[in-house]
Structure formats: structure tokens, C-alpha cells
Design a protein around this nucleic acid. Structure first.
Lengths: 357, 357
DNA sequence: TTGAAAGCGCTAACAC
DNA sequence: GTGTTAGCGCTTTCAA
């Protein structure tokens, strides 16, 4: 039977008949302790059911191990996969993730980041590069290793991992053109709120314009992306612009809706109309046709971001450099730009000419 | 330009010409401060870019606000939705979630829980009711409000929210019988690792047996659930037991695979063969037929669990009761058993007789 | 290899 | 309404 009171290191030390300091050394494996003493302390700790107090150890100057992770949301499958990558990397390290949601709205983000910083984190992972001046300044001033993920089209605060959504959009448009489509329309949802979606549309638009095949029209909706929304928007678009021969969607979910609408409506995919999504969502393998899409490599992004944080956190001195400037650049951070992977699927015609726009 | 050094409350107090204590009162809105002083302190804090240090305030006896959340994984869509519910409830409160993964493996869980407790959390949310004795003891001893979610078939440590997976399985079997199927087979994946899946299969099996329609066969696979796996297992099963007239799957993903196999194979669904999944995964709305399934009400589960924690955390005294037993039962905790919702879909025949086993 | 002293940044408790 | 004192549980630093 263990006490119901909180067991402190002092209790363990007393039970083992050593000083608090010695107990502390044993608990964090600091060495310089005789095997005999170590055994006694460990036994006492187990006996009393000692659970370390990281609040106290962090305050006293021990290493921090919380990493704040800010996602726009987790209902979006994309981010949960990024998170899986992050967790996998943190798992064998002493770091753990502290998840905060809600940076689809910049107003909220400042609060969230302040909150995270108040825990003296070992690092911060943020989604996207668009943050308020306040956020950037807080993070810079704090000296905490920061990695921004997904987007790489801008100036990062610290490290940066992701694909260029602009280039991903360009890639899609180039493939569409290479397949011979010319009357292209764009459909997006939850824009302009979702900057990354906006960015890939921008990339697509640019390539189309340069090729003299400016988008026929662009349809945007504030709603949450869904298959139903995709159906409905596609119907509306094709109604208004029947000459459309290809639709580029801001994500797979609405693209799937579009595909279902086209099939139900008897349109020949991909001959009469081509469709491209974005995100490479895997449950969509049940569609009658494999959707053309782009893999943003989300799991890898999470893993690399986490690795950067691990590298930076472990090489960072714990206390402030004694005096002077001293803030050494968080080592281990850098910019990793991954190449988005295009997946042709079956909703685009095979290429008739080498891609290149 | 703000200093690059960490700004403490003492710095703010000095800049505002007041005591640290007064500054502290202002920063946490404790009242008993004149408007003039408050304004001065707030100005100084803003000027210096002060960010509170919760590590210090928690150690000093301020309220804790981290809540540890343990999920088996987040790649499983189910848990990310639960998490969305939790976040939504925490959002307007001072609480924030600290996510740890990996309790598909009990060995890991002990480490994870110890880790969480070391942060002096305001609460802990765990998935499932099956935990090692060590975990139960740590949590009990700590006196931290605990809520176990999803499963309600067992003895909870503290609060408990979820559906009964046993009853969900029974529900499915009763509906299957009511629709007139008699030669029923079960297909599961990732079992027996996933206890909840195991439990619902158990419930189904029981009802079938009681009705004298024992499962023709049960097929289990260690693999990760996927549509491909469902296809393959279904093919194998129907090959070996062609007389099967209904398959109950452990989840929607493999059920979707089964459905696709049946359709491709020219079997009449739901007339010749009925199919039921589990989880009500929404992207599956793109299937040619709406899958019969059960909604485990995951979002609500997350919300309620979070509400319990909020209730308990806010009513808990911060410091230990002076002496004696003193550990008052965490108020606000209880057991909330939600009813699983059956969704008939189009892969089961309409009922021919009132459901009831 | 072990211990003693000091203090991390903040807040509770009490004075004024 | 404001300040003073003490201390949260641990680790750093230095001495033995």
C-alpha cells in the first residue's frame, strides 16, 4: 500500500538513507553514483511509487521536453498523418508533443503560441508560414527552435519542411496541359481561408495563363470540403460552363464528389473531362476510377520536422549563455523542400506530349 | 526592440515600478489592483514582450492546465474525431491537451502515463478500460481526474464515457437476424490487439449463438485494416464458405473492401449477401451502396470526456488537503453510456420482422 | 562518490 | 490596494 500523498524525491532519499541530491542523480541516470546506492534508491522509489515532477525539474534548470505542435485542425486527415510522423520520431526520445489546434484563424494563433511558450517548450512546430508579426516576434525572442511545416513558399522563422504548394499547383497544371486539356476550370473549398489550397490554385492558374489557357472559371466555396459539396459545385460549374474539359480541385474530397457527379451524369472520364484532386487520400481507392492527385508527402514532412526539433533541442544548451548576445542559431534547423509527387490515376488522359509547360 | 533575454515577472514589475506580487496579480487577473496600477503593469508587460512561465506558476501552486490524452493512434480516423471533440470543449477553457500515442501496446502505456503524470496534469483521458495494474495504481494514487473513453464494459478508474462495444456487436447481430440472414460469418482485422473490435465481435457472436445461428466461421488478420485487406479476406471466406449469406466486419474499411469484392464478383447485395461494417466512416459515402454500419458517436464521446475533465479540474482544490485522508472523490466524474446508433444503409435487406433477438 | 547551499519564477498567506 | 516572506520540488554549483 502506497501513500496517497504526493511522493517527492526527498521522500525517496529519506527512505533510501541518502541525500536528495544523490537520489536525484540516480533518478535521472546522471552517473557518479555507486551501484549499491543506486540500487537502494531505485528500490525506495519503486516501493513508494515515486513519479518524477517535471514541472519542478524544468524550473530548476533540467531539460525541457515538451514540443508544441500547432495544426489548423485534426479532423483533416492530412494533419493527423503529419502528426503520426511526428510522434513516431519523438517516441524513442524524451520529447513529447503538446497539440494545439486552430490556426485557420490567425487571431487565435497568437494566443495559442503564447500558451505554448509559457510551457518553456523544447521546440515548436507550426503549420504554414503565414503568421502574425506578433507570433513571429514571440517565437524569435524566445529562442526556442521553431519548424514551420507544409508550406515552403516564404520566409521561415527557423526550420522549414514541406512541399511548395505553388509548385504542386504548377505541376498539376503542367500535367493537365500535357494530357491535352485546354478548357480548364478550378474548384476550391474553404478558401481563401486555407492558404495552402489557395497557393496551389495560384500555381495552377499561373501555368495555365502562361500557356495561353487561362482558367475558364474559378468556383470557390466557404464550406467544409466534402464529397457532397464537390458533387454540387461540379454540377453547377458544368451547367454554367459546359465546354469545360478539365477540372482542377483544391482537394481529393471534392474531386471525388466531382468524379461521382460526372459518372452519374454520363460524362466520359477522362476522355471528355479530366479531373485532378490533391492530397492522395487513401480511402478514395474505392472510387470506380483512381483519382489523379498529388501526394504532399505528409508523413515524411512530420518525420523530418520532428527530426529537426530533436536535433536542435538536444544540441541546445539549457541555460542562457552567461552574458552578451549569445543566442546561437538553433543548430539542426534548415529548409527541406520535398518534391510533391504527382499520381496520374485514371481521371486524366495519358500524356500525349512530354510534360513541360 | 525587445530584449532577447527571457523576460520575467520581476522585470515587468521593475519596469512598472511595483512589486512582483502586484504584477502577478495583474497578469492573472486576480483583482484587488487599482486601475492605474493595472494599466502600468500591462503596458510594461506588453513593452517588454512578457510571456508568462507556467512551469513556475504551476510549481508555485497555481492551477495546472495540461490534460494528458492517450490514444492508440491518430492515423485511425476514429481517434482524430474524438480529439476534435475534446479540443472543441477545451478551447474556451484554460485547459490544453497533451497527446501521447501508443496504447495498443500495454507495455508502452505505463511509460506514457508516468510521463503524463510527471507534468502534474489537471486530468488524464485514456482510451479503453484495459490497463495494467501499474497504470491503474499510478492514476489512483495521483488523485488526478481520470476519464476512460470508448469502452464502457468494465470497471473504470474514474469517469467513463463511451458506447458498449459488446452491445454494439449485439445490436448488429440482432439487426442481421431481423433482416432474415442466418448463415453469418465474421471478419476482423488487427485483432485480438484491438480490444474494442474484439469486444464487438464477441457481442455479435453471443447473439448469433443464442439465436441458434452460430457464426459459420470467423476470419481474423493481424494486418492493418484496409480496403485491400477486406477484399482479400472476403474472397477467401466466400471461397471456403460459399453458403454464407451475411458478413459482419470489425470495421468499415474492410467492409468496404468486402462490398467491392462482392459487387465485382456479381453477388447480389443485399439480397444474396448482407454486409455490415462498424464506425460510420464518412468518406465511405462514395461507395456504390451505402454501407450498413454503427455510429460509435466518437465526437460526442470526446466532448463529454472533456466536459468531465473540465468539471473535475475546476472544482478540484489546488493544494493537498492539509492532513489526513483527504482525497475527496474527483467531482464531476461519472459514467456516461451512450447508445450506439445503427445505420441500416443499403447493404442489409430491409427488416422482415421486428428486430429483437 | 556524496552532500550542502542556493535558487529557478512564480504564487499563497499574511501583513500593512 | 500593495508589499513582504516563504516555499513549491527539483537541479546547479561547489565543497568535502
Amino acid at each position: 500500500m502506497r501513500s496517497t500523498r504526493k511522493v517527492t524525491l526527498a521522500d525517496v532519499a529519506a527512505a533510501a538513507g541518502v541525500s536528495v541530491m544523490t537520489a536525484s542523480r540516480v533518478m535521472r541516470g546522471a552517473g557518479h553514483v555507486s551501484a549499491r546506492t543506486r540500487a537502494r534508491v531505485e528500490a525506495a522509489a519503486a516501493e513508494l511509487g515515486y513519479v518524477a515532477n517535471r514541472i519542478a525539474s524544468t524550473l530548476a534548470g533540467g531539460p525541457t521536453s515538451l514540443v508544441g505542435v500547432v495544426f489548423p485542425s485534426l479532423s483533416n486527415h492530412v494533419y493527423s498523418e503529419v502528426f503520426a510522423g511526428i510522434s513516431a520520431v519523438f517516441d524513442p526520445t524524451p520529447l513529447s508533443a503538446f497539440v494545439a489546434l486552430g490556426n485557420y484563424h490567425a487571431a487565435h494563433e497568437e494566443k495559442v503560441v503564447r500558451d505554448i511558450l509559457s510551457w518553456q517548450p523544447a521546440g515548436v512546430i507550426l503549420t504554414g508560414l503565414d503568421h502574425t508579426e506578433g507570433v513571429r516576434e514571440m517565437l524569435t525572442t524566445s529562442g526556442v527552435p521553431v519548424v514551420e511545416i507544409m508550406d515552403v513558399d516564404g520566409e521561415p522563422i527557423g526550420g522549414n519542411v514541406g512541399i511548395s504548394f505553388l509548385e504542386a499547383g504548377e505541376l498539376v497544371a503542367r500535367e493537365v496541359l500535357a494530357a491535352g486539356y485546354r478548357r480548364v476550370a478550378l474548384i476550391g473549398s474553404r478558401m481563401p481561408d486555407d492558404l495552402l489550397a489557395t497557393r496551389r490554385m495560384e500555381g495552377a492558374r499561373r501555368v495555365l495563363q502562361r500557356a495561353g489557357a487561362s482558367p475558364i472559371t474559378e468556383l470557390h466555396d466557404e464550406g467544409r470540403s466534402s464529397i457532397a459539396l464537390g458533387r454540387q459545385m461540379t454540377a453547377a460549374l458544368l451547367d454554367a460552363y459546359p465546354e469545360t474539359d478539365c477540372i482542377i480541385y483544391s482537394n481529393d474530397l471534392i474531386a471525388a464528389g466531382g468524379l461521382l457527379h460526372c459518372l452519374a451524369d454520363g460524362r466520359e472520364v477522362p476522355d471528355r473531362i479530366g479531373l485532378v484532386g490533391f492530397n492522395a487520400v487513401d480511402t478514395l481507392e474505392i472510387l470506380p476510377l483512381r483519382l489523379a492527385t498529388v501526394d504532399p508527402r505528409r508523413r515524411e514532412v512530420g518525420e523530418m520536422a520532428a527530426r529537426m526539433i530533436v536535433g536542435a533541442a538536444l544540441s541546445l544548451p539549457r541555460r542562457e549563455p552567461p552574458e552578451g548576445e549569445g543566442r546561437h542559431p538553433a543548430s539542426g534547423l534548415g529548409v527541406w523542400k520535398l518534391a510533391p509527387r504527382f499520381m496520374r490515376g485514371e481521371t486524366l488522359r495519358p500524356v500525349t506530349a512530354p510534360a513541360g509547360g
